[in-house]
Design a protein around this nucleic acid. Structure first.
Length: 119
DNA sequence: CTCTTGACTGGTT
DNA sequence: GAACCAGCCAAGA
């Protein structure tokens, strides 16, 4: 195990950790996108990794509100990965987010931008 | 080790 | 606006 490999492993671990922490900062009733998270973490072209991180979120100790993360169009593309196909929409509805046909309503209004919210 | 598969995005047609 | 394509990168077969 070289020092370089160690650094790479740490980097990967930090990326997932950062994703989880950022997602947990999303307020109720607000949503953001995978790409935005990736961009904020300096991995603009690696939005798929954010999706993969969400896939691993269930292994995380703390609760990750992955339902507040949708794609750039505001579509619930990840709803299949919840306990039931309707869980994601139900969670959002419970927070006051209206979802019609997998599309978040007023998406541009409730969109949560870390660059603006966190500076 | 190679090949496929995505909880994605941006640009092009 | 819809459909298609290329770049991205971590798992799993």
């Amino acid at each position: 195990m070289s020092i370089q490999n160690t650094l790479i492993i740490d980097k990967k671990a930090n990326f997932y950790k950062d994703v989880f922490e950022l997602v947990m900062l999303i307020p109720e009733g607000r949503v953001t996108s995978y790409g935005t998270i990736a961009k904020y973490l300096g991995a603009t072209r690696s939005s798929r990794l954010v999706g993969w991180a969400m896939n691993l979120s269930h292994t995380h100790d703390q609760y990750i509100p992955a339902h507040r993360v949708v794609n750039r169009q505001g579509l619930l593309t990840g709803k299949m990965h919840f306990p039931t196909p309707t869980t994601m929409e139900e969670l959002l509805n419970a927070e006051g987010v209206i979802v019609i046909n997998d599309q978040v309503q007023n998406f541009d209004k409730i969109f949560w931008d870390p660059f603006i919210e966190l500076g």
